[in-house]
Design a protein around this nucleic acid. Structure first.
Lengths: 213, 213
DNA sequence: CACATTGGATAGTTTCAGTATCCAGTCGAG
DNA sequence: CTCGACTGGATACTGAAACTATCCAATGTG
């Protein structure tokens, strides 16, 4: 298909398609002449993915990096996933901690409490630390009770994620992990917001069953 | 305390404090003269909250609206919470659906499947729809299996959230609900990312216990 | 009294994410 | 063949957002 059709199918304006092409977010079509190129389904899908990531508020350079990792994963699943997660908010100013000493005290306390295995150099540790610090600074409490419950359920979600991960090829696994992390998060957030309403409504109706799971 | 101390305690640059003051994100201090004002703990905390929200990528007008709702909630818990959630991404272009007819097909299918009570006019329904549509456009699958599991665990998280909600005053409840939705989300996201690593590691070690919870 | 600090106003900067314009080569209907 | 529409490619422009910097006159302080 030509550009005009790509534009029609995705709803992305031509100027923006050209912009993404320039920025390297969309691979160029197969040139058939100096002023013509052929685009395929992969371009439609890629544009959808870029839209999803951009819609989540990711800056272009971060999207480019994620796409690069998906297209050319260089390293183990963990390495690539770590690099990809570093492109997701919350962004850390300090990219790496030299020694794992007293870095991330809050996050480490939480993870130790939950008995979780973790690599202290993993980006998400810093991200958790930052989220917890933000909580603290804003004067919002994080009790052990809440923490344990979150830990339990989040782990359940992670089990599903890992359980459904394709194991055939490493590339598939990486692609799945990188995109799954970024793209399922808004779904989970929206579901939580809706569950709040559901739980609150049902409790109002049957206030006696106020057991906290 | 004076501005300089507020700056020192929060780490927010003076120019930025003034900017937040201008934008109405920070309440003015108690003026003691034409060139002096007194700030208190509430200012420190507010600045922390603004930092947390801004750090999550929320635009200033949205933060202002959230703060307004927290400070002067006008309406029921559900109404206020709905308004607050509308300030959180993913942002919807179409603010309201006139009739609840075929609006949000994906989200409704999911919620019906989970047997959840929901108000079709609730913002989060549209947000879920959008997140699911983004998934689809990007060619990423959302199976029923994953959905059911997510639903179960997200519900568990919501039970905790609601269970720990203060019930003494309506204002407290609103404040808790609004901030809890916005501020705990990054924590949950970070925990999920870390749980992925933990689950994957442990599975590699004991591949036999691959039960998906 | 001198000097740093402050509130308040205004202007400037940077980054980001597109849009718009131009151009020259090419395709395709008549 | 021809003429107008469509393309790829390059460059310039725009508008919003979030700070950041500068100035000023009033004030508090040692």
């Amino acid at each position: 298909m030509r550009v005009s059709e790509l534009v029609a199918r995705t709803g992305v304006p031509l100027a923006t398609v050209k912009y993404y092409l320039r920025e390297g977010l969309l691979m160029p079509g197969e040139a058939t002449s100096a002023t013509q190129a052929k685009y395929g389904e992969e371009h439609v899908q890629r544009l959808g993915l870029v839209k999803a990531l951009a819609g989540a508020g990711l800056p272009i350079p971060r999207i480019r990096e994620i796409l690069r990792l998906v297209d050319h994963p260089d390293g183990s699943l963990f390495e690539v996933l770590g690099q990809a997660i570093a492109q997701l908010p919350p962004y850390l100013d300090t990219p790496a901690a030299d020694d794992a000493a007293d870095e991330f005290p809050r996050a480490r306390a939480v993870l130790d409490r939950l008995g979780q295995v973790y690599d202290p150099g993993y980006v998400a540790v810093g991200q958790l630390e930052r989220a917890l610090a933000a909580l603290e600074e804003a004067g919002i409490p994080m009790t052990d009770e809440r923490l344990d419950a979150y830990g339990r359920h989040v782990r359940g979600i992670a089990e599903i994620d890992i359980g459904l991960m394709p194991t055939a090829s490493a590339e598939d696994a990486i692609r799945y992990a990188v995109l799954g992390t970024a793209v399922y998060e808004p779904v989970i957030a929206a579901m939580r917001r809706l569950a709040h309403q559901d739980v609150a409504q049902k409790r109002l109706r049957n206030p006696e069953e106020q057991d906290q799971q």
